[in-house]
Design a binder for these strands. Structure first.
Lengths: 111, 111
DNA sequence: CAGATATGTAAGTGCTAGCTTACGGTAAGT
DNA sequence: ACTTACCGTAAGCTAGCACTTACATATCTG
């Protein structure tokens, strides 16, 4: 399973998640994003760089402005990992519960 | 949308993701987890503490050992956030594409 | 061309994460 | 009771993150 380490590290930061949430509404310019945020504009710029390198956003030049938008590819990889992990965990958990619920199996047999 | 900040911070670390992957197979003791990992056992212990506080794992005493297992609750919250974010982003992206594809709307009208 | 607008980037700083070693505590075995 | 096994935690260190201010760059406008 090939997933991006950078993507998980990127969404770990609350400020970056806030940026992503704002971009999920519609593509926006840097200054527009930074307007309603508690950090400075350069900080947002640096966050956008991280998000871009993680494949979570894409950018496009528009005059003096630079429009950022969500890039579905990076998100897809993360969802894939979470889904697979989720399914595996649930399966293992179900098996464990069934094993413990059935006395014939001997839940402490090898201990 | 109420999601856990700690959960996102927890899965940001590759070592912790490795711990989760091992636990997704079956519940395991601390030493068993640390056996096939590149870091020391105390390090794994600290990671497990973080994962537990994030609601991603649960623990149970068994003699001198401590068995850790996946806790579906914390994962569910993360998946919910990702799913909602994913859907919103795709919708916005689709709307944006349709807007740009339709010349009648004037894609640069307010600039 | 001069000025304003919009953004990226360099430099510097405070803080925290993740790691190691060392130690303490608890449960099982002889 | 003594020893062994298993684990959590404290102390200390290093590296990197997130932030700020200051500066450089590029585009549009009058």
């Amino acid at each position: 399973m090939a997933y991006s380490n950078a993507a998980f590290a990127a969404i770990a930061d609350p400020t970056r998640r806030q940026v992503l949430e704002r971009l999920s509404a519609r593509p926006m310019a840097v200054g527009e994003i930074a307007a309603g945020m508690p950090v400075s504009r350069p900080a947002v710029s640096q966050h956008l760089k991280v998000l871009k390198e993680a494949g979570l956003v894409s950018d496009r030049q528009d005059g003096t402005r630079r429009i950022y938008a969500i890039d579905p590819k990076g998100l897809g990889a993360m969802r894939a990992w979470l889904d697979q992990f989720w399914d595996g965990a649930l399966l293992a958990l179900k098996a464990e519960i069934e094993r413990e619920a059935d006395p014939a199996n001997g839940k402490d047999e090898d201990q």
